[in-house]
């Protein structure tokens, strides 16, 4: 069975801006992947046009069908994770192995307050 796994060190879900984000990825695919990439990015959801930004990516060249790797990223100072009625900004890691199953995504919070910032937008 094909499997893509992202494990964040200590199963942490909340990070301070500028923190190190460490962990391990592993994949097990039926065939040799065409490409393998781990991406650190943020994206927005809500009303209107969605935005996303790739902050950093790690490519694994000549990847085999089953591998595991450690990773570490230094998180930027902004933007913070936030959520309101009109828009939510979410940070995530995505493990994308082309030629394998759907990408694995692990979401987490980047905030100086220990939780995502709550906006009180009025409509």
């Amino acid at each position: 069975m094909e499997q893509l796994v992202i494990e964040i060190e200590g199963r942490k879900k909340v990070f301070l801006p500028g923190d190190m984000l460490r962990g391990r990825i592993r994949w097990s695919c039926a065939e040799t992947p065409k490409t393998a990439e781990l991406r650190l990015f943020w994206y927005t959801r809500g009303k209107g046009t969605a935005h996303s930004e790739l902050v950093e990516g790690l490519r694994y060249d000549r990847a085999g069908p089953s591998e595991s790797h450690n990773f570490d990223f230094k998180l930027p100072l902004a933007p913070y994770s936030f959520s309101g009625k009109l828009i939510t900004l979410t940070w995530a890691l995505e493990l994308d192995i082309e030629g394998c199953s759907d990408p694995a995504v692990e979401e987490f919070v980047v905030s100086p307050f220990g939780k995502e910032v709550q906006l009180n937008a009025s409509l």
Binding site: R45, K47, T49, A50, S83, G84, K85, T88, T90
Partner: peptide, 12 residues
């Protein structure tokens, strides 16, 4: 309701 829980968000 927060934006990412809204069933009518743009991505949906």
């Amino acid at each position: 309701m927060r934006a990412h829980d809204n069933p009518f968000s743009t991505d949906r």
